[in-house]
Amino acid sequence: MPDKERRMFNPMDFNSRELLVRERVTMALGSSLSLPEMLEATRAPLLEFVQADAMALCLMHVAPTLDFRWHVPGPPIPILREYAGIVDHDFLRAPILAQPEVPICDTQLLSREEYERTHIYQRSLELEPRLEHILAVLVPIRSGLVGAVAFYRHERSPFSSQSITALSSLTRHLSNTLGNCHAYRDLTARTQLLQELYQRKDSAFLVLEPPTHEVFRSSHATALLERWFTPSDVHASGLPHVLKERLDALVRMDADSRLGKTLWISNHEEGYRTCRFVELPAGDGPRQWALLLTEFPHSIPLPLHMQHALTSRELDIARGVLRNWSNGQIADDLEISGQTVKTHVRNLFRKLGVDDRADFLYQVAHLNRPV
């Protein structure tokens, strides 16, 4: 069975050619915030890197009820069109749901004889192409939404440990890219920013060409920044020092180093202030970045579907986190140990598909916003 711990990228796992292919994958993942365009750009280098013949992405809403939609770049895979009728026969679905970010393949779960008796394999023989081997991984996107990325081989040649290692090294990139695509979809309609969404006085966005050129700012951006920062906090470019320093650092980082560093959050007496940094797809000119600014009140209720995913004790812990309490404060309030709180926090973040406290706060606040 696969290692349950998430494997981070280690350059020593790959030779020079594989590292070049992986670089092409990460570049393609940032080539577009349109999901279909991103998948098509990523398909060739990703199939080469994982050593597969075909791939597909299944977007699944897991709350309040399970539903799914398949996206298949390249030639169609007919069996996926009737997935609703065979979902109960998908032997990989439960294992990957149980172990997010851990790639799992058919040979780790079934013998060859067992696999050939599965409904999925038998149906693929009828529909073509033959799905001789399957490798899949679940990547969190945001609370209640996950993506299952599946790879297929049409010839009888099992996925190797190197294929699993290759896919493991990309899971956080896939999660980040799918999250950006969905965030951008929420903010755009036919590639135009939804001005209606940003008429709210607690939201704004800036589009910048680093290091200092401002391309555009939405209504309320100036008022919001003036409320958040004093004149002495602002750089000559008009961007607050703290946001400019974060943007400058992100621009200098490679794709792996940026993971987990694209959300700035500040706890103010009036509420939480957040800035999400999104690298926009490359165009004809310099690469641009969008800075999405939002503020939320301290009293953020936990969405109902999140409540249903947690135990009663985890709910107590989650409410403490939303009050911005430290693990020690939560432990004192609930009269339990700090280590127990730490374990509960880790478990509830895993269940909800969030990275850390800042991401948890951002996701909860985003889901509570009327848009």
Rank of each mutant, 00 (worst) to 15 (best):
K4D: 12
K4F: 14
M8V: 09
N10E: 11
P11K: 12
F14N: 01
N15L: 05
L19I: 06
L29Q: 04
G30K: 04
G30F: 06
G30L: 08
S31V: 01
S31A: 08
L33Q: 02
P36S: 15
L39G: 00
E40V: 09
A41W: 01
T42D: 03
T42Y: 01
A44H: 03
E48R: 13
L59N: 00
V62T: 13
A63D: 10
P64W: 11
T65H: 12
D67G: 01
H71N: 08
V72M: 04
P73A: 05
P76L: 04
L80N: 02
R81E: 12
A84E: 14
G85E: 07
V87P: 01
A94P: 05
A98L: 04
E101V: 00
I104K: 00
D106M: 08
T107N: 09
L110M: 14
Y115K: 10
R117Q: 15
I120G: 00
Y121F: 15
L125G: 02
E126M: 13
E126N: 08
E128D: 07
E128C: 06
I134N: 07
L138A: 03
S143I: 03
S143V: 00
V149Y: 03
F151Q: 11
R153W: 01
E155W: 12
P158D: 10
S160L: 11
Q162M: 07
I164H: 04
S168I: 03
S169N: 06
H173A: 05
R185S: 12
T188C: 07
Q192L: 15
Q192T: 14
L193N: 07
Q195H: 11
L197C: 06
F205S: 02
E209Q: 09
E209A: 08
V215Y: 11
R217K: 14
S218L: 09
T222S: 14
L224M: 15
E226D: 14
T230H: 06
T230Q: 13
H235N: 15
A236P: 00
P240E: 01
E245P: 03
D248Y: 05
V251A: 09
M253V: 03
D254Y: 12
R258T: 01
T262S: 01
T262G: 00
I265M: 14
N267W: 10
R273Y: 14
R273Q: 14
C275Q: 03
R276Q: 10
E279C: 12
L280G: 06
P281F: 02
G283H: 07
G283M: 04
D284L: 15
G285K: 12
F296H: 10
F296A: 08
P297D: 11
H298P: 10
I300K: 12
M306A: 08
E314W: 06
R319H: 08
G320R: 06
A331C: 09
I336C: 15
G338S: 11
Q339S: 13
T340Q: 11
K342D: 07
V345S: 06
R346H: 12
R346G: 09
L348S: 07
L348R: 09
F349Q: 10
V354H: 04
D356I: 11
F360Q: 01
Y362W: 15
Q363Y: 07
A365V: 09
V371L: 15
